[in-house]
């Protein structure tokens, strides 16, 4: 008897929720703003779905939507990582 691949994926999902739970509680409150911007950037990994849609050579509605989704996700990926970097560079310790 073999489990449906969906069940495997669901297991991964549930475990990842737990990982997220513990990792995020360890984030220092001072860095909650960069946390939001970096989660923004990484959730745009949805771009992989858009890349597959835009992949085939022949033009189609699906391909066009895929390309638009790539551009939107790219705004987020670049914008998210760059703005996170900018914020993090500002956090400095006291100069002694």
């Amino acid at each position: 008897m073999e489990a449906d691949p969906f069940i495997f994926r669901l297991s991964i999902f549930v475990l990842a929720v737990f990982v997220g739970y513990y990792v995020v509680w360890s984030v220092t409150p001072a860095l909650h703003a960069p946390l939001m911007s970096v989660t923004n950037a990484i959730s745009s990994v949805i771009i992989v779905g858009a890349l597959i849609a835009a992949g085939p050579e022949p033009a189609s509605t699906a391909k066009l939507m895929g390309l638009v989704a790539i551009a939107l996700a790219a705004v987020n990926i670049f914008g998210g990582f760059v703005v996170t970097q900018r914020m993090l560079q500002m956090f400095k310790k006291k100069q002694r």
Binding site: I12, F13, A16, G20, V24, S43, I46, V48
Partner: peptide, 10 residues
């Protein structure tokens, strides 16, 4: 995507 979604969601 599943793992990232779970991380960001939580």
């Amino acid at each position: 995507l599943v793992v990232t979604g779970a991380l960001v969601g939580s």
